[in-house]
Simulated assay, not measured.
Amino acid sequence: MNTIKEIPSKETYIVRQPVLRKGKPIESCIFEGDDLDTTHHFGLYKNEDLTGIISLFKQTNPIFAEKNQRQIRGMAILENHQKKGFGDALVKHCEKYCKDNKTELIWFNARTAATGFYKKLGYQIMGDPFEIKDVGEHYLMFKKL
C-alpha cells in the first residue's frame, strides 16, 4: 500500500542524494528554505519504505503575475521505483495541497529529461533552457490552478 505524508526536511536526503545529487556530499541535499514554516516536504511510502519525495516552497517567481505561488523542488523517486506512477501521485498531492491553500500557480525548474513527465500532468514550458551549475540543463515550467 502507498501512503503520502508530510516529513521533516532531513528525511528527504536519503532519496535526494542518490537521485538528485548522485556522488555529491550529503550537504548538497540541503536546499535553502528547507526548514521554513512555509515549506512542506511530502514522502511517498510503499509499505513502510520511503520511495519518493517532493518539496513545496512558498516562493514567488516574478515572471508570473499570480500573487499566491508555490515552487516544487527536489521531486525524486528512487531508481528501482520509477515509472510506477509514484511521481504522478506526489505531484497531484502537491496540487491538491495548493488548491486547498488557495495557491494560484505552481512553478519549478525541471531537468530537461523530466519535461515530458510534467507535460503529461498539464505543465507548460516557459522560455528557453538554462543551465544550473553542477546539475545540468533545466526548463522553467508552470501550471495555473
Results as ranks from 00 to 15, higher is better:
A65K: 14
E48T: 14
G136Y: 12
P18Q: 01
V91P: 00
F42E: 02
E48G: 05
R73M: 04
L90T: 00
A113S: 14
T112A: 15
I125R: 03
A110D: 08
I26V: 11
L56Y: 04
G122L: 14
I14Q: 12
Y123E: 11
K58Y: 15
R111Q: 07
F42R: 01
Y45W: 07
D49S: 14
V15M: 03
E11N: 04
K22V: 02
Q59T: 06
Q69A: 03
Y139V: 11
G74R: 06
V15K: 00
T39H: 06
Q124H: 15
Y13N: 11
G52N: 03
M1P: 02
L90M: 10
F142M: 10
R73C: 07
Y13F: 15
T60P: 00
A110E: 03
T12V: 07
K10F: 14
K24Y: 04
Y45M: 00
I14W: 00
L78E: 13
A65P: 01
M126Y: 15
R16Q: 08
R111F: 04
N47G: 03
M126L: 15
T112R: 11
Y139M: 03
Y45C: 03
N101P: 11
F57T: 01
F42N: 02
N2C: 11
Q124K: 15
G116W: 02
F130G: 08
K144P: 04
E79G: 06
E95L: 11
I54R: 00
Y118I: 07
I30T: 07
K96R: 14
A76V: 12
K96F: 12
I132L: 15
F57M: 07
T38N: 09
L56G: 05
M126Q: 13
V19E: 05
F86P: 08
F130R: 06
R70Y: 13
Y123H: 10
K83I: 09
A114D: 09
Q59M: 11
P129R: 13
E137G: 04
N109V: 05
V135W: 09
K10Q: 11
I53W: 03
A114M: 09
N109R: 08
K133N: 14
T3L: 12
A114T: 03
D100C: 05
F142N: 12
D35S: 11
T103H: 05
G33Q: 05
P62I: 08
D128T: 13
T60S: 01
D128G: 01
L121M: 14
L56K: 00
L121P: 06
C98Q: 02
M141S: 10
I125F: 12
C94D: 04
D100T: 05
F117Y: 12
L140Y: 09
L145D: 04
E104D: 15
E48L: 06
T60W: 00
A114P: 01
E48P: 02
K120M: 08
Y123W: 11
E131R: 08
T103Y: 12
S9N: 05
T115W: 06
H81T: 02
H41C: 07
K84H: 13
T12F: 10
